[in-house]
Nucleic acid binder design. Structure first.
Lengths: 194, 194
DNA sequence: GTTGTTAAATAACAAATGTTATTTAAAGTA
DNA sequence: TACTTTAAATAACATTTGTTATTTAACAAC
């Protein structure tokens, strides 16, 4: 019988994920992952065909984490919560945001998926769903661009001074205005929300 | 006397810059630059102390190009022209945008510099300069975030479908609304610009 | 033409990395 | 106890890359 297994596939992923949270993929080598795991490189290669497969696993876990952020209730609007979650994910996981959103976006669908969920939420909102299709799309586009902008500015180290609550209120105030503008222009509302 | 110099410092930078425009820094090696230049690696190392110095030169040239984009007259508003130029720079130079804005931002001041120029322009505008300091800053912040968002979405390959003119009008319409909202809320204006 | 200078090419080397081969030894079983 | 299986560690190898050392040869003064 062989000796007991010490390092599970799960453990390797954990180590790789922690490493990536700290330094992205700049340092994502078999030897560094092994170090994080307190092992040699052997377990890495017995659990994974190659480093690419492990990287993919890390990205999947990152996507899962990002998704969790977008489902938390920061404000009363589910629509704004998604954008806000996206921004807070960037703020608290800069390196993950970088590898997931800024470096791998073409190969993985996370951003487009995100926009699709946002659009679904937009349709559920009582006020917003009164907007014509085109206007609704415009609101979505604007807020998609804005949340991506804030998230990625934070990711690259601009706006380091923002606290979590400040980030939330920037998103919230902008969202309110963008929606109000659409409603006012469509004649559904007369003036801005206080 | 030594043989004539064939490869100037300038030539090396040109080759490196072209290479970077095509594939960012993923492939930025002495051997690849030399290939682009149709030489061996020798001229690279006789013109530059090391590859880092050459990379820096490429970044400087990239910043210069980005600046040119922000000075072109896309609309009648100098303020909006800057954001628009930033976006078009990203659209037409995705790899450059990546290395300059998404990968090196903490070490170089280009983004903060950009915001500062934007702010200066904002003060010159007749209507906007009537806004209280705080509101003006808010307009700036919103448009800074928005233009960065659109630029970086385009850079990472989302919104590939946008033409140059569509990108311009997204920027322009958003800018108009953001400014109008500020003016209306401040009581300087009554309704949205058509 | 010979020679000195030094661009450019070529070769060489070290470090880093992905990956595979080999060794070591833990854990049960006959 | 000797043996089998196979995790884990270790070594080894190829490739890539930055960088430096060495070679080659163009040019012009003598």
């Amino acid at each position: 019988m062989p000796p007991k297994t010490i390092f599970l596939r799960e453990d390797v992923i954990n180590a790789a994920f922690e490493l990536t949270k700290k330094s992205g993929f700049r340092d994502f080598t078999a030897r560094r992952v092994a170090e994080e795991l307190n092992s040699s490189t052997a377990p890495v290669y017995s659990c994974f065909k190659n480093m690419e497969e492990l990287r993919e696993e890390v990205l999947l876990r990152g996507e899962k984490l990002a998704l969790e952020y977008t489902l938390k209730p920061y404000t009363k609007s589910v629509f704004l919560n998604m954008g806000t979650g996206f921004v807070l994910f960037a703020q608290e996981n800069r390196e993950l945001f970088r590898v997931l959103i800024l470096e791998s976006p073409e190969t993985r669908g996370i951003l487009k998926q995100f926009m699709k969920s946002l659009y679904a939420e937009l349709g559920k909102d009582e006020l917003i769903s009164q907007l014509p299709e085109e206007d609704r799309k415009e609101v979505l586009r604007r807020m998609g661009i804005f949340s991506h902008g804030l998230a990625s500015l934070i990711c690259v180290g601009i706006h380091n001074e923002l606290t979590k609550n400040e980030a939330i209120s920037i998103m919230f105030n902008m969202g309110k205005d963008v929606i109000d503008v659409a409603l006012i222009k469509a004649g559904i509302k007369k003036s801005f929300t206080a």
